[in-house]
Design a protein around this nucleic acid. Structure first.
Length: 556
DNA sequence: TTTGCCGGGTA
DNA sequence: TACCCGGCAAA
């Protein structure tokens, strides 16, 4: 595993999941229909998932896509990559399926470490100077969730003459990546991982996280941020999100470069062929590691700059430049060696004369394309919620920066929060064993100081615990009866009491979870005092039993 | 029919 | 507040 792959993985999972959920929220797409004019090409470290959609017959796979086409492409691709609203791992599996034509096994799609690399749906692949127009890969997918509208809209795109059979479903080609890539050795992986960690800890991004969105942040990005986060949330709540420790490290793996390649690039494009851009910088990511690009160049293909899956900007440019992503630098050079040398000498403080490169420079520059003709805002109609999202959407923190749209890894805490919230809510909130004799006499609200509710700190770390059984004696108060409650009731009671006790939220009348009037507490299985002691030993009964109240000695 | 216990009354 | 009991509903 290379560190670049580490960087790639989170993007894949988050973006894909988010996109999928977003699309699912519209209930428009659930999968692909066989024969869609859509291409998903995946490859090993090439990490390329290229998609193409054509919005009109006769323009099959035109490399110059208009806005609608771009949107179509993005939206469809999002579905493709996020098939099934599944957990991150499942999504990876789906990705593998999607990205693996018949002659490509998973090892081609997955890196040596099994990490799906950078399946950015918007990466465009240029193979030997030729775009993927003729390398389309049709992946038939269940069309159950696809609306007829979408099908009807897309069908003509497949075959303008209406004969979809002319294109075999798998008539795609994949990027001819050598099957037997020489993966980095294990030691090398560790070294690279350490490099990543080091760069993370020392990255200006980490040291100087963006605190506010620049004023010039386009609305597009802002909206995209919301959608992205919502999408991420939807993914996390779609039912099977598995977020173990290893996964947790994924989205929080920022890339060292600090500048925002998109903003920088936009400014760059707006400028007069300026090589250097001066856009404000913020956290960013480089889903396409430099070494990957290098290999791509060596092997004849080019990975273009990734485009955000949501609110994406897409361009069709061929000119590849290399932009330094070091904070406040953004130097743009035309050659990778030049940019690497620049990084090595200027930022890394290494000997410029030495050609030795440990590859670390790759992290600090990205590839950009110029001569872009089209900028398009994509996925503006995405619905950020997933139909599978059962609970209310989480309250996302205010957008610190619109770059969050592009940089899920930059704000792992937020993601953690988003991911943990539903889980925390679903956790048993109270296992306190409230045992009380004469509890019917207790009239105070049960205000258990040890709340077993999941506490979520500001940094997104969720802490939950279960309080030990306690003997609780009620206090005098307005409430008439205290009785043992089930776990669910305890939880609700806790919430209700919290509401009552929380002066700051007086207006949220949480429905008191007390059973509806008329519904009795189910009779417990345990024997009560009457059964145990019998009528002849009534003096041994608990007071409640003696008073024909709910037994407090043999609580269910 | 027995049992559990809610709701209400009384001292 | 302690005690008592009618009555309902589940077992």
């Amino acid at each position: 595993m290379t560190s670049k792959r580490l960087l790639d993985k989170p993007l894949a999972g988050i973006r894909l999941g988010g996109a999928a959920s977003s699309r699912a929220g519209n209930s428009t797409y659930g999968g692909n229909t066989a024969g869609h004019a859509e291409t998903v090409t995946a490859m090993d470290c090439g990490v390329i998932l290229a998609c193409k959609n054509v919005s009109s017959p006769g323009r099959v796979f035109s490399p110059m896509l208009d806005n609608s086409t771009l949107k179509e492409c993005i939206s469809k691709d999002s579905v493709v990559n996020g098939v099934g609203l599944k957990s991150g791992r499942e999504k990876h599996l789906d990705l593998k399926k999607v990205g693996c034509p018949g002659n490509m096994d998973e090892s081609d799609l997955m890196g040596p470490c099994g990490v799906l690399k950078n399946p950015s749906p918007t990466h465009r692949l240029i193979l030997n100077g030729q775009k993927l127009d003729d390398q389309m890969h049709f992946e038939p997918r269940p069309s159950g969730r696809e609306s007829g509208e979408a099908r009807s809209r897309l069908q003509p795109l497949l075959c303008p003459d209406g004969s979809p059979e002319e294109r075999p479903p798998h008539a795609s080609s994949h990027i001819p990546v050598p099957r037997n890539r020489n993966p980095s050795g294990h030691a090398d992986k560790e070294v690279m991982a350490a490099t990543v960690l080091t760069s993370l800890s020392t990255s200006p991004l980490v040291l100087n996280p963006p605190s506010a969105a620049p004023a010039a942040v386009p609305e597009l990005s802002s909206r995209g941020w919301k959608e992205s986060l919502s999408a991420s949330y939807s993914s996390s709540t779609s039912g099977n999100w598995s977020w173990d420790t290893s996964d947790q490290s994924v989205p929080s793996t920022p890339s060292p470069p600090l500048s925002n390649p998109w903003k920088g690039f936009l400014l760059f494009m707006q400028g007069d062929d300026a090589i250097r851009t001066d856009s404000p910088t913020s956290c960013s990511e480089d889903p396409i590691p430099g070494t990957l690009r290098e290999r791509g160049r060596r092997e004849g293909w080019v990975v273009t700059e990734p485009v955000p899956s949501v609110g994406a900007l897409v361009w069709n440019s061929m000119k590849v430049m290399f932009k330094c992503l070091w904070k406040n630098c953004e130097k743009v050079l035309s050659t990778s060696s030049g940019i690497q040398r620049h990084i090595r000498t200027v930022h890394l403080g290494r000997n410029s004369d030495s050609d030795y490169s440990d590859g670390e420079e790759d992290f600090y520059y990205t590839e950009i394309e110029v001569n872009m003709d089209t900028l398009s805002e994509g996925l503006s109609s995405l619905t950020p919620t997933s139909p599978t999202t059962a609970g209310p959407p989480p309250i996302f923190p205010p957008p610190v920066t619109s770059d969050l749209l592009l940089l899920p890894r930059c704000d792992s805490a937020h993601h953690h929060q988003a991911f943990h919230t539903p889980l925390s809510q679903s956790a048993p909130s109270a296992l306190c064993h409230i045992r009380t004799d004469h509890a019917y006499q207790a009239t105070a609200p049960v205000n258990i100081p040890i709340s077993s509710e999941t506490i979520e700190s500001e940094n997104g770390i969720s802490v939950s615990w279960q309080s030990p059984p306690v003997i609780f004696k009620g206090l005098p108060g307005p409430m008439s009866h205290i009785r043992t409650v089930s776990i669910g009731e305890k939880r609700q009671l806790t919430a209700a009491h919290t509401t009552l006790n929380n002066k700051a939220h007086p207006t949220t009348p949480t429905p008191t979870p007390k059973p509806a009037s008329g519904t009795r507490k189910p009779r417990g299985e345990a024997k009560k005092c009457r059964k145990v002691y019998g009528m002849e030993k009534r003096d041994l009964w608990c007071t409640a039993c003696r008073w024909k109240k709910a037994c407090q000695r043999f609580i269910d």
